[in-house]
């Protein structure tokens, strides 16, 4: 278990991580989310002791990272796949890492097999594609068979095949009961993999909850209604404190009340309904909404902001205009 307590890190005047506290529970995939520049990488560097905090503390299984007897047996971390000496072969790169933790030499061959780099083991890593570098980095994290794995933006810049490979690997690692802590600035990346979420923005904790809670907590939940008498329903909903607006395809989108309540109101008023659907805010939108105030560099988007941005990489985006736009 990784425990972060009151962690603070400043670079000059800039506060990169601000009084951050959370715990990463074993045996789960914990997604670490935040817009670019939110302090995810800094937090991971602080966990690993690469940077020193200005305040607060981090422990791994109750110990400071520096004090772990064999760090590679406890934590496997990949922050930057290109943080290798390009002139060294994949084999020798892994060998020099294994040697620091007294791991057997044969281990190097095993992890190379696992990530599928055996054929290029003797090649210098300078010529590796990003996907291959990523695999080499992951091979390094597995050398010590650690219980905790940490990946910083592991799918950044990968092709779809590479993304799928990493996703499957993370699931496989978690299925074996390992703790997987993985950062991303794309919510869609977490949607199928993470059990738990830690969301930060501008170095502060925004949410620390299960995936289900995260979705429920976001206010984006809305109800789609199809009815032959839309005008009556709009008025009825408004009278009860909700809001309904027409969407393009002849349905109404109701916000501010549950699907049950909408059905009850319709029944009381004698309005016929042909469809009543709870639209779960897609994760991407919930995330955009939560972090809208904490995005460090806003692009001046003409027209609507986040609703649009949310839909591009994510899964089929739910309704349209009501959601997001906290800009």
């Amino acid at each position: 278990m990784i425990e972060v307590r009151g962690l603070t890190k400043r670079y000059g005047d800039k506060v990169a991580v601000n009084d951050l506290s959370f715990a990463i529970e074993p045996g789960k995939v914990t997604g670490f989310l935040g817009p670019n520049g939110a302090g995810k990488t800094t937090t991971m560097r602080l966990i690993l002791g690469l940077d020193y905090p200005d305040g607060g503390s981090v422990t791994v299984d109750g110990q400071r990272y520096h004090d772990l007897a064999y760090p590679m047996r406890e934590v496997g971390a990949l922050l930057d796949a290109k943080a290798v000496h390009g002139g060294r072969s994949a084999y020798n790169h892994l060998l020099c890492l294994a040697q620091t933790n007294n791991l057997p030499k044969r281990r190097v061959g095993e992890v190379l097999d696992l990530v599928g780099l055996s054929e290029v083991a003797r090649k210098r890593s300078k010529g590796f594609s990003l996907g291959m570098s990523q695999r080499l980095g992951i091979a390094g994290t597995l050398l010590g068979d650690p219980r905790v794995l940490m990946f910083d933006e592991p799918v950044n810049g990968l092709d779809p095949e590479g993304i799928l490979w990493i996703r499957n690997l993370m699931k496989a690692l978690a299925a074996e009961g390992r703790t997987v802590f993985v950062s991303s600035h794309l919510m869609s990346e977490m949607e199928n993999t993470a059990d738990h979420l830690i969301v930060i923005g501008r170095g502060r904790l925004i949410a620390d909850c299960s995936m289900a809670e995260f979705i429920a907590r976001s206010s984006g939940a809305s109800v789609r209604v199809r009815t032959p008498s839309p005008d009556q329903l709009v008025m009825a909903v408004a009278a009860e404190g909700g809001s309904a607006s027409a969407s393009g395809d002849g349905t109404l989108i109701v916000q501010g009340m549950t699907a049950d309540r909408v059905g009850d109101i319709a029944f009381e008023k004698g309005i016929r309904l042909h469809e009543l659907t709870l639209l779960r805010a897609s994760l991407e939108e919930a995330f955009m909404e939560l972090t809208a105030d904490s995005v460090e560099y806003h692009a001046a988007t003409p027209g609507q902001g986040s609703g649009e941005a949310a839909s591009q990489p994510g899964p089929a985006a739910a309704p349209q205009p009501h959601i997001g736009s906290g800009v």
């Binding site: 560097r45 690993l48 002791g49 690469l50 990272y65 520096h66 772990l68 760090p71 590679m72 934590v75 971390a77 922050l79 930057d80 290109k82 943080a83 290798v84 000496h85 390009g86 890492l97 620091t100 933790n101 390094g140």
Partner: peptide, 13 residues
């Protein structure tokens, strides 16, 4: 090369 970060992660002392 950035290797220092990998080195110090495997051996933080």
């Amino acid at each position: 090369t950035g290797m220092i970060r990998t080195s110090l992660t495997s051996m933080p002392r």
